[in-house]
Design a protein around this nucleic acid. Structure first.
Length: 296
DNA sequence: CTCCAGGTATTTT
DNA sequence: AAAATACATGGA
């Protein structure tokens, strides 16, 4: 079965750039890329579904490779993919701001059509944020894979396993020592279990965060949770809740990119960092994403 | 061997 | 309130 998702502004969308980001040299176990297609497995209401996404000029094409989804999972997947590639955002204003700033003006022609590649699943985004704190990305993706292979589920297709991120319940019931054996730190193991329990008990969810009045309220709510500091809160909000005003302060890649462009003196130079971002009000998260892109 | 990684909580000035 | 430190371990 095949279905499609229209791309509202195909002239400002580049599938090649989005795929480049997904495939930028790390081993992310949540999808597989081959050629110009990406496959990802979902488990919704205990239905396991494998989707292959490809692209034409003005729409994404979804092929269901195993089973045809029921209406509710189909709707979930449609929304997930719309959010994954941030299809509904019009980049025109962002590109105008880039053009006005000499140091980053070339990013528009260079990365034209790159949409912010998101992590629509909030639990996955938070868990990934925790796992990735203060370690290099290569190692972080290894830890993520171990976590997913041990606590997630999977679907077999053509002799390959497609993994589905663990449900909160699976990690809520995990033994801290087992997480520690995956080479997570003791602190991270405790953070993950506590956060998973919050999700499992209904004390934390996308809906709960969205019900808060504004962005600062969501930041504050997240940072009250052990293990979620300024960086993780902003990272999660920009990657999973489409908050466009997020700056993951302290992010090593962000600081390196800004230093490389001589926009900050050193990693403590918050004044210059804030001054730079003032030119991108409302598009801070996109600016961060493009700076990360520029590091490759 | 050293230094740094898509940091945070805790302890010490 | 600001600064130092422990945490874990791979990669360069």
């Amino acid at each position: 079965m095949t279905t499609t998702i229209p791309i509202p502004q195909p002239e400002l969308f580049s599938w090649t750039e989005c795929l480049w980001f997904l495939n930028r040299g790390f081993d992310d176990c949540m999808y597989k890329i081959s050629g110009n297609t990406v496959r990802r497995a979902f488990e919704i209401e205990s239905e396991k579904i494998l989707v292959e996404i490809s692209h034409t000029g003005n729409e994404l094409i979804l092929d269901y490779l195993t089973v045809e989804p029921s209406p509710k999972p189909a709707a979930y997947i449609h929304k997930f993919i719309t959010d994954w590639f941030d299809l509904d955002t019009d980049l025109t204003p962002f590109y105008r701001l880039l053009a006005n700033h000499q140091a980053v003006a070339n990013m528009h022609p260079q990365y034209h059509g790159l949409h912010l590649v998101a992590m629509p699943d909030l639990f996955e985004a938070i868990a990934w944020g925790i796992v990735g704190q203060q370690i290099n990305l290569t190692f972080a993706y290894k830890l993520k894979r171990r976590l997913v292979e041990k606590y997630g589920t999977s679907l077999q297709f053509e002799n390959e396993a497609y993994y589905i991120f663990p449900k909160p319940e699976a990690i809520a019931n995990a033994n801290p020592a087992d997480l520690r054996d995956l080479q997570l730190s003791g602190s991270k193991a405790a953070y993950l279990i506590n956060i998973a329990q919050n999700f499992a008990d209904g004390r934390l969810s996308r809906e709960i965060l969205l019900a808060l009045p504004d962005f600062p309220a969501r930041q504050k709510y997240l940072t009250t949770i052990k293990g979620i500091g300024t960086w993780t809160a902003n990272y999660v909000l920009m990657k999973s809740l489409s908050e466009r005003a997020c700056i993951p302060y302290g992010d090593a890649g962000l600081l390196n990119a800004l230093a490389g462009l001589n926009l900050i003196e050193n990693k403590q130079d918050k004044a210059s960092l804030d001054a730079f971002f003032e030119a991108f009000t409302g598009w801070e998260a996109y600016m961060v994403f493009y700076l990360w892109r520029s590091l490759a």
